[in-house]
């Protein structure tokens, strides 16, 4: 039984009722990297497991998906699992229930402008190649954006 959208208090907005048409054909699992996570198989793919979950916004593999879109491309029922995944991630994040590393990454981007930490090795390697130090001049603007969208407030 697919519970994600049939329960009265569905976690998905009304426009995403497409999950109800999933007939569990397993095609979504053919190219899915999350299938490598222990416990998923052709009878219980990552996508079904997510759809059946009682609390999908904190599903154990929700953030392991690379958003490669291949499940969307192959699904014969046009279920679009990725849009469900993206929605659930945002819900979990807003509730403070996303993995800690996600909050850390978001903060790193908003503090430095980059998704990876600038290290002494970075500076040494770039200097040796005649490249200038990583520039963080965008930080002021992206923090301004995050402030105006209310995102900075959410991070507090």
């Amino acid at each position: 039984m697919i519970t994600i959208d049939l329960k009265e208090n569905s976690v998905l907005p009304g426009g995403m009722r497409q999950t109800e048409v999933c007939f569990e054909c397993s095609v979504c699992a053919l190219h899915c990297i999350v299938q490598h996570v222990a416990g998923f198989d052709s009878k219980n793919t990552f996508v079904y497991d997510l759809f059946r979950s009682d609390d999908p916004a904190v599903h154990r593999a929700l953030w392991a998906c690379s958003s490669c879109h291949k499940c969307v491309e192959v699904c014969p029922q046009d279920v679009d699992p990725l849009s469900v995944i993206v929605h659930l991630r945002e819900k979990g994040f807003n509730e403070g229930r996303a993995p800690a590393y996600v909050y850390d990454l978001v903060k790193l981007v908003l503090e430095t402008g980059y998704a990876f930490p600038i290290t002494k090795k970075t500076q040494k390697d770039r200097e040796e190649l005649g490249l200038s130090a990583p520039d963080s001049s965008a930080v002021g603007e992206i923090r301004c954006i995050a402030s105006r969208t209310g995102f900075l407030e959410k991070l507090k």
Binding site: W63, L105, G113, A115, E141, I145, K154
Partner: peptide, 27 residues
Amino acid sequence: TESFSCCPDPVRLRGADRFTSLAIAAR
């Protein structure tokens, strides 16, 4: 240009807040 920021990351930033992610990409 030195004015670019992280694109931003299509998994974690986009997952955290779709609109903020879109606005940073738009910048």
